[in-house]
Design a protein around this nucleic acid. Structure first.
Length: 310
DNA sequence: CGGATTTGACCGGCGC
DNA sequence: GCGCCGGTCAAATCCG
């Protein structure tokens, strides 16, 4: 299937299906996506060609509105990509599902990461990213009990990590708008990188979602965003102007802990709207989503991050 | 004035 | 045990 991996790249030219909402050139399909700003390449593959983001939200898509997704997702998450050939230089976003155990340890070289750090490392070429183990999850995040929470999770031993996924975006702005409201709560220098990492928390009350944003030091034009946790609310609709991408119509539903929804699908549903909506509020900055591919990653996966060979 | 950001301090985990 | 590092806190500051 390594060869098939390229199938998951989906070059989506302009979706002019709708009006101003979908003005941008980016749209996504499925677990692995190539965002392309140029309209030249349109690659429809068997399992993708029925997908039209303008009709179907990514979430719906993931949740089975389209046929053949199981296999699709399986493929996507177990992907054994030879993306290296397809997109050598491009970054490989990663999904990390927490708590899972049955990881299909991505057999492959291109996309394998046991942690977000690894993902970042992939972009940054940093190998000592195997420190992702200290990741711990928070079930809830009470403002009043953050410290206690921290201690609690330590006391109780290691908890399952929050589901996380990272993706890389070509953009000049660090903090890409995704429809949610975030509050920055920290910034740290990243080892082996001149660029700092910023920490954001969803400002919605009780929402435990956090994200980290850093810039790839190998490719400064690439921003690595790592989401952690699941939103328990809808995308704020009261966002004004530049706060809300016009295309939040594809906002993912709040992720309910429905046991029926596989973790990886939940993760996918967490994708920021701009990944699958077709609006781009950063006109001036022209973020370009180079590509997107997901794989279910878990601790068992060696954080070996193949540097894009070449 | 309220909310967001900045930034140094602090804490815990991990490797040596 | 110690030092490094990632992640978080929280006071100070900024900004609309």
């Amino acid at each position: 299937m390594s060869e098939d991996f390229t199938q998951f790249y989906y070059h989506q030219p302009l979706i002019h299906h709708d009006d101003d909402h979908r003005r941008n050139n980016y749209s996504a399909a499925a677990a692995s996506i190539t965002f392309s700003a140029d309209h030249s390449s349109v690659v429809h593959h068997d399992n993708l060609q029925s997908f039209d983001p303008s009709y179907l939200s990514f979430t719906e898509f993931l949740h089975g509105s389209c046929t053949g997704h199981d296999s699709f997702l399986d493929a996507a998450f177990g992907l054994s990509p030879s993306i290296s050939s397809a997109v050598k230089e491009e970054r490989t976003p990663v999904v990390e599902a927490a708590g899972g155990g049955e990881t299909p340890a991505t057999p492959n070289s291109s996309i394998s990461s046991s942690s977000t750090e690894a993902a970042a490392a992939a972009a940054a070429g940093d190998e000592d990213s195997n420190k992702g183990k200290k990741e711990v999850a928070k079930e809830t995040e009470d403002d009043s009990s953050k410290k206690l929470d921290v201690k609690a999770k330590k006391k109780g031993g290691k908890k399952a990590r929050e589901a996380r996924f990272a993706f890389m975006t070509k953009s000049e702005v660090d903090h890409l708008e995704d429809g949610y409201r975030w509050r920055k709560y920290g910034q740290k220098a990243v080892k082996n990188s001149p660029y700092p990492r910023s920490y954001y928390r969803c400002t919605t009350q009780k929402c435990p979602v956090k994200k980290r944003v850093e810039r790839s030091f190998q490719d400064p034009s690439t921003v690595i965003t790592t989401y952690e946790g699941q939103h328990n609310h809808h995308v704020p609709v009261t966002l004004r102007g530049n706060m809300a991408p016009a295309g939040v119509v594809f906002a993912p539903p709040p992720l309910l802990e429905g046991p029926s929804i596989p973790a990886h699908q939940q993760l996918l549903a967490q994708m920021p709207q701009y990944l699958y909506s077709t609006s781009n509020v950063y006109d001036k900055d022209h973020p370009q989503f180079l590509q997107y591919q997901l794989s279910e990653l878990q601790d068992v996966i060696p954080p070996v991050f193949p540097k894009h060979e070449t």
